[in-house]
């Protein structure tokens, strides 16, 4: 009955392929600190000074998949503990206690596309959504450091307290990065040069994979 020997591998094969089933497991490990948060997300973190005595603050954070965009924020922007999801967060102080908020977030993929995200921002200051055809007129594209920035400036002056959003969308490393300055229209307008200068400091690190 030599054929029986020949069948053995088939049975083994079926058994082996069946033994990869996922199951719930439990174990005990020595106390671990939760994953370290990026500097800008750590509670109370203030941005470290750039070596060399520059009066700008520098912060670098990893993206979702580990690689970085880096930037240097103006010294008068105050780094603040960011909410979860933010890669960086700053308070931009104005006169008479007015404050604007600068948020930096990054998400994998195109996150619904340019139009959807710009309309999301417009919705936040009660502006009507744009159509595809409005995009070229509403956006400015800037190329620098090998990155493409889609920059927008939305303002709603009709509201009781006029609001303005200055934003930039940057696709990088299979993710989309959002830099958004929002707050009272007058303060955001005053900060526009600083925001544009800030955008110019954003860069990707040199590729380092072997």
């Amino acid at each position: 009955m030599r054929h029986r020997h020949a069948l053995l591998p088939l049975v083994l094969l079926t058994l082996l392929t069946a033994c990869r089933e996922a199951k719930v497991e439990s174990y005990r490990v020595p106390k671990e600190k939760p994953e370290e948060l990026p500097p800008a997300m750590a509670a109370g973190a203030s941005a470290p000074a750039v070596p060399g005595g520059a009066d700008m603050a520098g912060t670098a954070v990893p993206t979702a998949d580990g690689s970085d965009l880096t930037w240097t924020a103006p010294a008068h922007w105050k780094a603040k503990p960011a909410a979860a999801m933010r890669k960086g967060s700053f308070t931009v102080p104005g006169e008479n206690g007015a404050e604007a908020d600068l948020s930096i977030t990054a998400f994998p993929g195109d996150v619904g596309g340019e139009l959807a995200n710009l309309n999301r921002w417009r919705g936040q200051i009660q502006l009507a959504p744009l159509s595809d055809g409005d995009l070229p007129g509403a956006t400015t594209r800037i190329e620098q450091h090998g990155l493409t920035f889609v920059v927008v400036d939305f303002v709603n002056t009709d509201a009781a307290g006029p609001r303005r959003i200055l934003g930039a969308i940057v696709p990088y490393n299979n993710a989309t990065w959002f830099f958004k300055l929002s707050g009272p229209a007058a303060l955001v307008a005053k900060e526009k040069p600083a925001f544009l200068a800030f955008l110019q400091t954003i860069s990707a690190p040199a590729p380092s994979a072997p």
Binding site: A22, K23, V24, E25, S26, Y27, R28, V29
Partner: peptide, 14 residues
């Protein structure tokens, strides 16, 4: 426990 973490992991497929 201040010394240990007791972990239960559930694979994504489940």
């Amino acid at each position: 426990d201040p010394q240990f973490d007791d972990v239960v992991v559930i694979p994504e497929t489940l």
